[in-house]
Design a protein around this nucleic acid. Structure first.
Lengths: 133, 133
DNA sequence: ACTATTCATAGTAAATTAGTAGGAATTGAA
DNA sequence: TTCAATTCCTACTAATTTACTATGAATAGT
C-alpha cells in the first residue's frame, strides 16, 4: 500500500501554491516544476486533477498560471490527496464485494478509509507548509 | 493507494483460522482454499508470510496444517496486514527522503502511518470474525 | 502576428501485482 | 519401509498499474 508519485508531487505543488497565495499572483507550471524538481509535463497532469477538483484556478495564455481556489487554511491535505489519487483502499468500498455480503473485511475497510480521511482532513495546507503537523 | 490481494486474502485466512482456533486442530491449505475461494498455491505464499511473522504455526506431513500461534483475541488485524503487506505508505518513511530534509510531507506521512497502524491494532481477529467493528 | 501559457489526449517503458508451476522436504499411517 | 498427504522453497509469467514523455490544439496578453 503505497502513495503514488501523484500524491507526493501533488502535495509539493499545493505547498508552493499555498506559499504564493497571499501575493495574489499566478504561478506557471515551469516555476512549479523548478520548485519541486518534477517535470513540467507530468506536473501539468497532476495540476489538471486539482483543477478538476476545484482546488486550484487556472488562467491560460501569457502570464497565466495557477493559484489556489481558496485560502490555504481552508484547504486540507485530504482534499488535495483525494483529487490526485484514489484513496479508496479496496474497490468494493462503496459498492458490493465479489463475495456479496460474505466479505468479513468489508466494514473494516470502510472504517479504515474513514479513519484515514478524517486524519487527512484535520491538516490544512497552511499547517503543512509550516510543517506544523 | 490500494490494499493488495495478499492483504485481503490474508484476512480471510486469519478469520478462518480464528474460527478454528478453539478446536485445537490444524487446517490445511486446501480447506483454507475452499473456504476462501483463493487458489491453494497462492495461499501457500501468503500463509508463509504469516508464519514468518509468527502469527501462525505450521505442521508438515500428513494431517498437517496451520493454526494461529495465539488466541484470536490477542492477534490484531494490524499484525496480520503488516505480515503480508508493506504498509509503509512512502519509501522514505523511516529513512531519508530523496529531498533530504526538504520534504514538506515527511512528517505527514509518518503521522498518517502511525494513525493507520494504531487503528488496525485496535481490532482483534475475534472482533473481525464476529464483524464487531 | 507572435509568444507564453494552459488544456487535452495518446503513447510507452518500467515496476509491481497477482498469480501459476514444479518439485524437494517432512510426517503419519498402512 | 513404502506411500500418501502435507508444508516449504523458489522460479517463472501474464496482467495491470504507474510514471512518465510527447504532440499539438486552444487561449490570452502584447
Amino acid at each position: 500500500m503505497k502513495m503514488s508519485s501523484k500524491a507526493r508531487y501533488g502535495l509539493y505543488v499545493a505547498v508552493e501554491l499555498a506559499k504564493n497565495y497571499q501575493s495574489g499572483e499566478h504561478l506557471n507550471v515551469s516555476s512549479l516544476s523548478q520548485a519541486t524538481g518534477v517535470s513540467d509535463k507530468y506536473l501539468e497532469q497532476i495540476i489538471a486533477l486539482m483543477k478538476k477538483a476545484d482546488i486550484v484556478l487556472a488562467t491560460r495564455g501569457a502570464n497565466g498560471g495557477y493559484i489556489l481556489s481558496d485560502s490555504p487554511d481552508r484547504i486540507t491535505v485530504g482534499q488535495v490527496l483525494r483529487a490526485v489519487e484514489n484513496l479508496e483502499i479496496v474497490d468494493c468500498l462503496h459498492s458490493e464485494c465479489a463475495q456479496r455480503g460474505n466479505c468479513v473485511a468489508h466494514n473494516l475497510w470502510g472504517r479504515l478509509y474513514d479513519n484515514i480521511n478524517s486524519y487527512l482532513d484535520t491538516i490544512t495546507l497552511t499547517q503543512l507548509a509550516e510543517d506544523n503537523i
